[in-house]
């Protein structure tokens, strides 16, 4: 299992269009990907649950991946979050 903490840097957070892009990317990996915000754990491959987690600008979240390509998943998804601007 791989985990990494990242900070949300885009103004609209992960519940809008960037959230959609994030979920699409997460689905590219075979690993199970979970987002942890506080005591909430949500499936990173479900836009609905991700939206409901209400992840906003300035939040620190943990990306947890478990599976064959877990290292790539954590790296790829962290990079994507850092690249969001809108």
């Amino acid at each position: 299992m791989q985990i990494r903490e990242v900070e949300i840097v885009n103004p609209t957070g992960l519940h809008t269009r960037p959230g959609n892009m994030f979920v699409k990317k997460a689905k590219e990996y075979a690993a199970t990907v979970t987002i942890i915000k506080g005591d909430k754990r949500v499936n990173a491959k479900s836009l609905l649950t991700l939206m409901k987690a209400g992840i906003s600008l300035g939040d620190r979240i943990i990306i947890e991946a478990d599976g064959a390509d877990e290292a790539e998943a954590v790296a790829g998804l962290s990079e994507l979050i850092a690249s969001f601007t809108e």
Partner: peptide, 16 residues
Amino acid sequence: AGVFEGHLEILMDEEF
């Protein structure tokens, strides 16, 4: 188009 792509994502959402 991005708005409706979001709809598409939710329609096919695995938790849903």
